[in-house]
Amino acid sequence: MKKIISLALAVVMLCCATIGFASCAKEEKIIVHTNAFFAPFEYYEGTEIVGVDVEIMNKVGEKLGKKIEFVNVEFSAIIDNVKDGVVCDAGAAGITITDARKEKVDFSVPYYTSVQYVIFKADDTTLATKTGADGEYMVWEALAGKKIGTQTDTTGWIYTDGEINATADNDYGYDGVLYGTNTELMTYDNAQLAADAIGANMIDAVIIDELPAQFIVAANSQYKCVPLYYSGETDADDAPVEEQYAICVTKGNTELLEAINAVLNEMMKNGEVEKLVMKHMGLEK
C-alpha cells in the first residue's frame, strides 16, 4: 500500500513539474530547434552545439535580452515543430526557403546562398563531369540510372525526388530531368549516413548542400564533390542549383522575426556571416 501511495505521489509530482514547466518556462527563453549535423551552420563540438546559426541566434538573444536554447531534433521535424510553436519558437538549421515551407512558417531574410553538390567516389568513371568557367561540375543528366542518396526532407531530397518523379501529367506539372531513367532515390537520416552508403557501395552519389559536402570530402580522400548544374543549351548556359538559407519562426511571432531580420541585415552588411562561415569551417586566419 505504501508503495502504491508513493508511486501515486511521484505521478502527481511529475504532473506538477510538467505544468510548472509549461507555465513558467514560456517567456524566459527562446527555444530554437536545429539538426546539429550540418557543419558549419550547426554541429556538435564535443557535447555542445555550435555553429554559424548558433552565433546568429545568440546575437538575437542579446538583442531581446532573452536566453537562447538550442535543441537537437531530426531535420524533418523542425518545420512542423516551429509551425505548432508549442515546443519551440524558431528553427535555425540552414533551412532553405521553399514555397511549401513558407505556408507553414515565417522566414527571415535569406542570409546565405548555397549550391547543391554531388558527392561520389573519386575513381567512379561512370559519372561524367564537365568543366566550365567556375571549374568542374556535374549536370543532372549524368546521374540518370544511378542510385542517389539524400537526407530526408532536405532540399537535395526535394529536388531529386522532383527530377525523378515529375512529369507534366502529374501533380508536379513539369518534366523531371531524370523521369523514366530508372534513377533510384534513397533517403537517410543525415548526410554522413548517406555518404557512408557510397563507401559501402549501396548508392552511387549523394546530393547535399555545398558546405557539408566539402566537409565530408575533406575528411574522406576516396570521395570527390562537384556542384550540381541544370543543363542549358550550351555548356556556358549550364546553371548551378542554387538556394537560400533563412531562419524560420512560428507564424505571427513578429517580435522575434524582426529581431532576427535586424541582426541578419546588420551582420550581412559588415560581412560577418561570411566570416562566421569561414571560422566554423576552420578556414579562419
Binding site: 549535423f37 554541429y43 556538435y44 554522413q192 555518404a195 557512408d196 566537409f215 575528411a219
Partner: peptide, 25 residues
Amino acid sequence: SMIGMYDLTMAAKIIGSGNNMASYI
C-alpha cells in the same frame, strides 16, 4: 537519438559527422 538525445549512438553519429571523423564506421 531519434528525438535528438545525446546517448551513445548519438555520440557515434556526432563523432562520425562531417566536421569530425566524417565516417560512421
